[in-house]
């Protein structure tokens, strides 16, 4: 047993809290410029695919692969903005935080304000079957997740009602209008393209990539870090896990436990924060798997 572990074991809960917050504080309050460039650049890249494919500059199959990448990568920059990591209220770069938040999820057809409010509820009530808006993503296994993910996209699934119900419950019913506007604009664009002779292009640059991306994002952001989703509480509702695809392809979600403990730590710094906090998390009996 190392000296550090022995020292941690002799600490009281309040001393441990102070040390934990002190370590975590070193990774906060840093503007994640990478996420800013990623969010805006990714949207521009996805938008550029449309003329490139429609004017036959690049083949449709290549456009499909790139679009799937773009749409899959469109959530996380907004996630940084949802937690005010780029800039909080009243700070000079607040406009940039909100810009990245709004722009980056356009390919997913998910409004920023809806995501922000429902995501806060997910943090406040993680794994609560009644109050966690992402609870219906939970499943017994990876294959079960895939099946539920398909079922969740059916018109009368509980998933399609989860976010509107959360917004109503928290007094933010007016924000549902954002989702209605986004869906209306999205469908109008898709219908127009389709009846103008570009249905296959619209399907492969937006509709299918969106379906793949939603599955991928929900798997790594909602299912894997909270599986088996039976426990609640600060140190029990999220786990560390080793992804077979590695940290990059699992979008950094191996360290999602750090995000739930300290949402202000930028995504890019969660691995370093995890390494620094690991002895404390072990002392607190967190689920860290082989990470």
């Amino acid at each position: 047993m190392s000296n550090a572990t022995v020292n941690l074991n002799s600490m009281s809960e309040s001393e441990l809290d102070v040390l934990e917050r002190k370590i975590a504080g070193k990774y906060m309050h840093k503007v994640p410029w990478g996420a800013v460039v990623w969010g805006i650049g990714n949207l521009i890249a996805w938008l550029a695919l449309w003329p490139l494919v429609l004017m036959d500059i690049i083949p449709l199959w290549l456009g499909f692969i790139l679009a799937t990448l773009n749409v899959s990568l469109s959530y996380l920059p907004s996630h940084e903005a949802q937690h005010n990591i780029i800039a909080g209220k009243g700070q000079p770069l607040r406009w940039l935080n909100e810009l990245v938040g709004h722009l980056s999820t356009i390919p997913l057809v998910l409004p920023y304000r809806v995501l922000r409010h429902t995501h806060y509820e997910h943090h406040s009530h993680t794994n609560d079957p009644q109050l966690d808006p992402d609870f219906n993503i939970h499943a017994d296994s990876g294959w079960h997740f895939l099946w539920k993910s398909i079922m969740n996209r059916q018109p009368e699934s509980g998933r399609s009602e989860a976010y509107p119900e959360t917004l109503k419950r928290t007094g933010n019913e007016h924000i549902i209008l954002d989702a209605v506007i986004y869906q209306t604009v999205y469908l109008t664009i898709m219908f127009t393209l389709a009846w103008s002779g570009y249905a296959i292009e619209a399907a492969l640059l937006w509709w299918v990539p969106k379906q793949i991306a939603i599955t991928y994002i929900e798997y790594y952001l909602s299912w894997a870090p909270h599986h088996p989703s039976k426990e609640q509480g600060r140190y029990a509702d999220t786990r560390g896990f080793k992804s077979r695809l590695g940290n990059l392809l699992s979008m950094g979600m191996q360290y999602h436990i750090i995000h739930h403990l300290y949402p202000k730590i930028p995504l890019a710094l969660t691995p370093a924060a995890y390494r620094a906090l690991k002895p404390i998390l072990q002392r607190r009996n967190c689920h860290l798997g082989e990470l």
Binding site: L187, M190, F191, A194, W195, G197, A199, I200, A202, A203, W207
Partner: peptide, 14 residues
Amino acid sequence: VFSIGFLTPLLAQL
């Protein structure tokens, strides 16, 4: 409406 607005032209063009 989705089936008429999008699926019909998509399937037809396929």
